[in-house]
C-alpha cells in the first residue's frame, strides 16, 4: 500500500524533482543492471535476462519492490537492490522506462506452426471457456504494455517468458494482491505456456515500443500492481 501511494505520488508529481537529477550520471549509476540486462537494458532473444528498457516505470518500480520484499526471488537481483531507498528505486525505474530503443528482429525459434497458432490465439483472444482473458486486453493491442504499470510482452527471451509463467503457476513469483497474473497463470496448462512463450518471443518489437496510455475502463481481473 505504502509503495502504491508512493508510486501514485511520484507519477503525479511527474518529472519535476526526480527527472531534474536523473541525467546526472544515471547510466553509470546503473552499470550493475546492464551487465545482465544488456547494453542500455536491451536484452536479446538469445538469453534469459529480460529487457528492462522502455517498460513502464510503474511496472519496473513494482518489480524492484517485489525483489526487495521477497515477492519475487532471484538472489543476485535482491542482493543488489536490497538497501536502496524507494526514491532511488523509482529513479532507476524511470531511467530505464525513459529509454526508447530499437530491437533486432526476433530469432527463428523452430516452433511448429500449430504451436505458434495456439499461442497467437491465447494471446489475442484468450479462451473464454476456461476464463483465460486475452493477453492483449491488459498488455495493449500492440503488446507494448499500458501505463503506468502493465509491462510490454515483446522483446523478451522465450526462456524468460516460460520461466515467469511457470513461476506464477508454482507460486514462486508473486505480485501485490490481488495477484491477477497468478490467477491467470493458474488456469494455463504447460502446453498453453509453451505456446504463448513461443509466439510472443517470435514477434518483432514494434516502433514505437513505448507502453500506451490505459485504454481499458475496467481490466478483466482486479490487479494489485495496476489498481484502477
Amino acid at each position: 500500500m505504502r509503495s502504491a501511494v508512493a508510486l501514485v505520488l511520484a507519477l503525479a508529481l511527474g518529472s519535476s524533482a526526480i527527472a531534474a537529477e536523473s541525467s546526472d550520471g544515471m547510466a553509470k549509476r546503473v552499470a550493475a543492471c546492464t551487465t545482465c540486462h544488456g547494453k542500455e537494458g536491451r536484452a536479446t532473444s538469445d538469453g534469459y535476462f529480460p529487457r528492462i528498457a522502455g517498460k513502464p516505470a510503474g511496472y519496473l518500480y513494482n518489480q524492484l519492490l517485489n525483489f526487495r520484499e521477497g515477492r519475487r526471488s532471484y538472489a543476485p537481483m535482491t542482493y543488489l537492490i536490497d538497501h536502496m531507498s524507494d526514491a532511488y528505486l523509482l529513479e532507476i525505474a524511470r531511467h530505464f522506462a525513459s529509454l526508447e530503443l530499437t530491437y533486432p528482429p526476433p530469432q527463428t525459434l523452430g516452433a511448429s506452426s500449430a504451436l505458434l497458432e495456439r499461442g497467437r490465439k491465447l494471446v489475442t483472444a484468450g479462451d473464454g471457456a476456461r476464463e483465460i482473458p486475452a493477453c492483449v486486453q491488459c498488455h495493449g493491442k500492440a503488446m507494448t504494455g499500458m501505463q503506468p504499470a502493465i509491462p510490454g510482452l515483446l522483446g523478451l527471451p522465450r526462456d524468460y517468458l516460460n520461466g515467469q509463467l511457470g513461476a506464477w503457476k508454482t507460486q514462486q513469483r508473486h505480485a501485490a494482491a490481488p495477484d491477477c497474473m497468478a490467477t491467470i497463470a493458474g488456469r494455463l496448462n504447460a502446453a498453453d505456456v509453451e505456446a504463448i512463450s513461443a509466439w510472443l518471443s517470435s514477434q518483432p518489437v514494434p516502433v514505437p515500443s513505448a507502453a500506451v496510455p490505459m485504454t481499458t475502463a475496467k481490466l478483466p481481473l482486479p490487479c494489485g500492481s495496476a489498481p484502477q
Binding site: K28, R29, A31, A32, L80, H83, M84, S85, A87
Partner: peptide, 22 residues
C-alpha cells in the same frame, strides 16, 4: 556478485559495482 553501498541520507543515490558472475 557486485554490490552497492546503501542509500542513506548522506549518499542517497549510490554508485555500484556490477556483478561479473555471468
Amino acid at each position: 556478485s557486485g554490490g552497492y553501498p546503501p542509500s542513506t541520507a548522506g549518499n542517497p543515490r549510490p554508485y555500484g559495482m556490477p556483478p561479473f558472475a555471468q
